[in-house]
C-alpha cells in the first residue's frame, strides 16, 4: 500500500515536472543566454561571439561582461528611431484593428444563434492558412501595376498607378489583415455574452443608440477589447515578415533590425542586445496580457 502511494505520488509529480522542465530548458535558459551574449563582445570566429561560460573562471566571466552593445544601441539613433517607429506602427495598427474588428465581432454576436458557429469558423479559417501566403497575396494586389490599380482604373476612379506597396500603408494593411482573427475572436467572446436587456432598458429610458453604445456596450466589451488589443499589439511591435515583404526599405521596425543584425551583419551580440531592448519594451504589455488571459480562462463558467 505504501509503495503504491509512493509511485502514485511520483507519477503525479511528473505531470507538472515534465512540461515545467521543458520550458525551463527551452525557454528560460535561452533567455539567460541572450542576456549574457548581449553583454559580451563580438569575436571574428564561429560562432561569432565569445564563449558563453567557463566554470573555471567565474571572475573573468563577470569582468568580460560590459554594456558596450547597449551603449552602441543608445549612440546610434537608428535603433531609437526603429523602436519608436515599431511602437507607433503597432499602436496605429491596433487602433485600425479595433475599428475594423469591432463591427465584425458585433455583427457576429447579433447574428442568429444557428449561424454563429459558422461565422466563427469563417473568421478562423484564414488563420489556418499560411501567414506567409496571406501576406504574399497582398503583394500582387498592392503592386503599382497590381490588381487594386487595375480595378480602380477599370472603374475609372484613377488613371495613375497607386503607390501603396513599399510604404507604411501597406504595412498597416498587412497587419490588419493578418491579425484580424486575433482581434475579432476575443471581442466576439465578450459581445456574445452581453445581456441585451441592458440595451433595451437604456433605449426605453430615452438613451440614443450612440450613447448606449458608449455607456453600455463598450464598457461590457472591455475585457475583450483589452485582450484583443494586447494580442495584436505585442507581436506587431516585433513583426518581421510584414514590414519586410510589404514595407519596402523605408519602413523601420525593430524586428527587422534584429533580423538584419543577425543575418546580414552577423553581429550576434548586437542582435541579442536588440532582442533585450525589444523585450524591455514589451515586458509590461506581456505581463498584463498574461494576467488578463489567466483570469479569463479561470473565470470561464
Amino acid at each position: 500500500m505504501k509503495e503504491h502511494s509512493l509511485t502514485k505520488r511520483l507519477s503525479s509529480a511528473l505531470v507538472p515536472a515534465v512540461p515545467y522542465l521543458w520550458l525551463g530548458v527551452f525557454f528560460l535558459v535561452p533567455f539567460l543566454i541572450v542576456l549574457k551574449i548581449s553583454l559580451s563582445d563580438t569575436a571574428v570566429a564561429q560562432p561569432p561571439y565569445r564563449p558563453v561560460f567557463e566554470w573555471s573562471d567565474i571572475a573573468a566571466f563577470f569582468s568580460g561582461l560590459d554594456l558596450e552593445n547597449f551603449a552602441l544601441l543608445a549612440e546610434d539613433d537608428l535603433y531609437l528611431r526603429a523602436t519608436l517607429s515599431s511602437v507607433r506602427i503597432a499602436a496605429i495598427s491596433t487602433v485600425l484593428l479595433l475599428l475594423v474588428g469591432f463591427p465584425i465581432a458585433y455583427g457576429m454576436a447579433r447574428a442568429p444563434e444557428r449561424h454563429r458557429s459558422l461565422l466563427v469558423a469563417l473568421v478562423i479559417l484564414p488563420f489556418w492558412t499560411s501567414f506567409l501566403i496571406r501576406i504574399y497575396a497582398w503583394i500582387a494586389i498592392l503592386k503599382p501595376e497590381g490588381l487594386l490599380t487595375q480595378a480602380l482604373m477599370g472603374l475609372g476612379l484613377t488613371s495613375d498607378p497607386i503607390e501603396i506597396l513599399n510604404t507604411e500603408w501597406a504595412v498597416y494593411i498587412g497587419i490588419v489583415y493578418a491579425y484580424l482573427p486575433f482581434m475579432v475572436l476575443p471581442l466576439y467572446a465578450t459581445l456574445e455574452k452581453m445581456d441585451d436587456t441592458l440595451l433595451e432598458a437604456a433605449l426605453d429610458l430615452g438613451s440614443t443608440p450612440w450613447r448606449s453604445f458608449w455607456t453600455i456596450t463598450v464598457p461590457l466589451a472591455m475585457p475583450g477589447i483589452i485582450a484583443g488589443s494586447l494580442l495584436c499589439f505585442i507581436p506587431a511591435v516585433g513583426e518581421f515578415v510584414i514590414p519586410d515583404l510589404l514595407g519596402g526599405s523605408e519602413t523601420l521596425m525593430i524586428g527587422r533590425q534584429l533580423w538584419s543584425e543577425f543575418f546580414s551583419n552577423r553581429d550576434w551580440p548586437l542582435a541579442s542586445a536588440v532582442a533585450i531592448l525589444l523585450l524591455i519594451i514589451l515586458v509590461i504589455p506581456i505581463v498584463i496580457y498574461r494576467d488578463v488571459e489567466a483570469r479569463r480562462v479561470e473565470t470561464r463558467p
Partner: peptide
C-alpha cells in the same frame, strides 16, 4: 504565444 518570433527564434538558436 505573444512574444515576437524574432526573440524566440534568436534565443533558441543561441541556446
Amino acid at each position: 504565444m505573444v512574444m515576437p518570433e524574432v526573440i524566440t527564434g534568436l534565443s533558441l538558436l543561441l541556446f
